[in-house]
Nucleic acid binder design. Structure first.
Lengths: 256, 256
DNA sequence: CGGACTCTTGAAATTATTCAATCGGGGTGG
DNA sequence: CCACCCCGATTGAATAATTTCAAGAGTCCG
């Protein structure tokens, strides 16, 4: 996954080349291995080439919360560049291929290409917007809606990068992982998934979610993608496929 | 609240003056009035002088989730500068005094003071770290712990800005607001608050939380402040007041 | 084949919501 | 000044959502 494909409305060809030259060679990380550790001074930032990586925080009883789930094309480690270290661990959820960007290489952008740093700032604010939506999901929605909303997001984010169509998408998570993402036990996650299947909305298995009722999935998850700030053409494509399009998005921004 | 007091380890005196010159005069917003609207092109970013402001998203049934709560000294609106508009509303929770920074004034920093933009990037990543902790709080903790954790955060963040001691702090929220922050009903929030009071941990009323058992509050909320990236002296002060200090923080970062 | 892990299901216990009602303080109009 | 009203806090009881505990079935792999 190159940065242009990941952010088609953000980076130009020259910028993409520059970013590419900053990144080291691809490194493979095995599933369930650590990508970055909390409370350790870091000197490189990871760009996620392929695979899934997650941020985790655990409570005292060992119960774990997935705080974010990154897909190919995400800069998973920008916070470590700006803040120096992380307050949480980042793990490979599936097998991952990543490319490292040295922090001091990013430092040089301040004189070489300051506009690029501004765009990386934008990228990290997109992550923050996703975080806020996760707060909403976990805080407001009931079990079935939480899982549906989570599936919607993972599908739309991959769709926006050309990684899937709107009928199925990769999700190499166990039901325990899905529970950790949605703030529920694996047992309850299983029951919600069973319900979604019985309602003919989607099936989950083999690391893939197959969507049998796209509208139903979005409706059940009360899902809108306005917070993803998608490129206009992706937004339009999504709208055309959904009877009750999202209430708002980039294209629909009013003028003041 | 000036920026130096808000971020003592981040901005130098010269930078503080520069930021100050960018900001317009203080504007008063009445409680429960809108500060920024979703899906509207914005041209200024708000700096919160005093008061409390919150980001909200609602589900289809009208149930509302507080996604973040800002206090005096927060740049509440940086996402709107970088992304152009917001995907959610920002409301004044209490009476608010804010100062606006025109986006084009920030643009000029690219040539005038690029290092300042980098620091603003840092500020927005601190917000993102707080978002992630909210995901953890709402997704992992049970009711009483959620409320205690929320209280801890609001106290520590205000303490770090010299806005309170560790025995009481302002929290001009109704119990309904607290419920929206913690992902629960106002009725349940009330019950959790009653429990905290009966356990001798804290009392809530009149827009103030009075902490009668600081250790108990932190223990009940399983709270650590590592994600706030506090200045070292604030971190040290907190540690010295808590028998079982947080497991990790800036001062405790390993060297790689 | 054995072991480890995941998915699945049932039943009991816990946690949280909903519905309904009461209490109390602060402000307003008479 | 006081009756009245509204809103927020509080409580009880019934209902719903979720967790916990436990067990069994399926699958993959050494």
């Amino acid at each position: 996954m190159d940065v242009r494909r990941a952010y088609p409305d953000l980076f130009g060809p020259t910028e993409a080349v520059l970013i590419d030259t900053m990144m080291g060679p691809p490194q493979d990380i095995r599933a369930r291995h650590r990508i970055a550790r909390a409370n350790v001074r870091l000197t490189t930032a990871a760009f996620l080439d392929t695979g899934f990586a997650g941020r985790y925080r655990s409570d005292r009883s060992g119960r774990r919360q997935l705080q974010s789930l990154h897909i190919g094309g995400d800069f998973v480690d920008l916070p470590s560049y700006v803040l120096g270290h992380l307050d949480h661990d980042i793990d490979a959820v599936s097998p991952v291929s990543q490319r490292m960007i040295p922090h001091d290489r990013l430092d040089r952008l301040h004189v070489e290409a300051p506009h690029l740093l501004h765009k990386l700032w934008r990228v990290s604010l997109l992550d923050a917007a996703i975080h806020r939506y996760w707060i909403f999901r976990v805080g407001c929605l009931l079990g079935r809606a939480r899982v549906a909303s989570f599936f919607c997001e993972m599908m739309v984010r991959q769709y926006a990068r050309g990684l899937c169509q709107l009928d199925r998408f990769d999700l190499p998570l166990t039901q325990s992982d899905i529970g950790e993402a949605c703030g529920m036990t694996s047992v309850h996650a299983n029951r919600m998934i069973v319900e979604l299947r019985e309602e003919g909305i989607c099936t989950v298995g083999g690391g893939t979610v197959t969507v049998t009722d796209l509208d139903g999935l979005f409706r059940t998850g009360q899902y809108t993608w306005d917070y993803l700030f998608l490129p206009a053409h992706v937004d339009a494509a999504l709208r055309s496929r959904l009877v009750a399009g999202a209430p708002c998005s980039v294209a629909g921004v009013a003028r003041a």
